[in-house]
Amino acid sequence: MNAPWDSDSFKLQDHPAYWPAKRKRDAKAAIALCDDVVAEENLELLYDLTYGLEPIVAAPALILHETQNALARGFAGWLSAKMNWQIDREIYQAKTINRDFNTNGWFRIVNEPEFYGPVQAGRPYILADDVCAMGGTLASLRSYIETGGGKVLGMTVLASGSGKNVQISLVGDTFARLTGAWAGKLVAAYPTEIGHELESVTEPEGQFLLRCPSYDRFRAGVDGARDC
């Protein structure tokens, strides 16, 4: 993470380049935002992580003519130029449902992004996005790339809610608590209701589910998200 999405000290959306990049497909604004926000120490961490390798930078973004948002792809391009890495120009997010600006947890769990395009099997990847909410978009892209034979080494985003790094992969204790939730009803119902196994949720998604007090509330949340 490079910056907080919303804090008392700084809000990414208050940067003058944010809305032109996010809503008006302004590539120059996206680059200017990256210049101001990306921390040098994070670039050093990425360099150490990929030392001796030549990763491809991929972004969870729609094809250009389907979106006005240049920020995720702009960050990926900025990062590839800065680090002298290749940028992916073949993997795209399918235009199924718009998740931008929707921070409702149920909506994001139910409406997972889909991707298409060839993966370069055997190659390492770094994922770059603009904002991390619950990590589902990045996790879905990671799954798509690794199913296609690529290897995701790491992820980076311009901002998260608090500006702190986010644990994406589900930790063991969280999974154990999810498995036992509501006398095992959650782990039994999740594949049918959501379409994949419970162990593939992200850590923020897992914590969100644990705050749900009952199976009935879970069903209400899922049904409500489908009706959006």
Rank of each mutant, 00 (worst) to 15 (best):
M1R: 03
A3R: 01
D6H: 15
D6Q: 14
S7A: 14
S7N: 06
D8A: 15
S9M: 04
F10N: 02
L12H: 05
L12M: 11
Q13A: 13
D14A: 10
P16V: 12
Y18K: 03
P20R: 02
R23A: 14
R25T: 00
D26C: 09
L33G: 03
C34D: 06
V38K: 06
A39V: 12
N42H: 12
L43I: 13
L45Y: 09
L45C: 08
Y47A: 14
Y47C: 11
Y47G: 15
Y47P: 00
L49Q: 09
L49H: 06
L53Q: 15
E54A: 14
P55W: 05
I56Y: 04
A58K: 03
P60S: 12
P60Q: 10
A61N: 10
E66A: 12
E66V: 00
E66R: 14
N69L: 02
A72M: 05
F75E: 03
W78G: 05
S80A: 15
K82T: 15
N84W: 00
N84K: 08
W85F: 14
W85T: 11
I87S: 09
R89Q: 14
E90K: 11
I91C: 01
Q93Y: 02
Q93R: 13
T96Y: 01
I97A: 03
I97L: 08
D100C: 00
F101R: 13
F101G: 00
T103V: 09
N104H: 03
N104T: 00
G105E: 02
W106K: 02
V110I: 12
Y116T: 12
G117T: 08
V119R: 01
V119K: 01
V119D: 01
A121M: 03
A121L: 04
P124Q: 03
Y125F: 15
A128E: 02
A128P: 11
D129K: 02
D130F: 01
V131S: 06
C132Y: 09
G136W: 02
G136S: 10
L138W: 05
L138E: 09
A139K: 09
L141C: 10
Y144C: 08
Y144E: 07
I145G: 06
G148C: 04
G148R: 00
G150I: 02
K151H: 13
K151R: 14
T156Y: 01
V157W: 01
S162A: 09
K164D: 14
N165W: 10
Q167L: 10
V171N: 04
G172S: 11
G172C: 01
D173N: 10
D173Y: 05
R177C: 08
R177M: 11
R177T: 06
G180R: 12
G180S: 13
A183M: 06
V187R: 01
T192L: 04
E193A: 10
E193L: 14
G195Y: 05
H196N: 11
H196W: 13
L198G: 07
S200E: 07
G206I: 07
Q207H: 10
L209V: 15
L209S: 14
L209W: 15
L210I: 11
S214P: 06
Y215N: 02
Y215Q: 05
R217W: 12
R217C: 13
F218H: 06
F218L: 14
A220I: 07
G221I: 09
G224I: 06
A225P: 12
A225W: 08
A225D: 10
R226F: 08
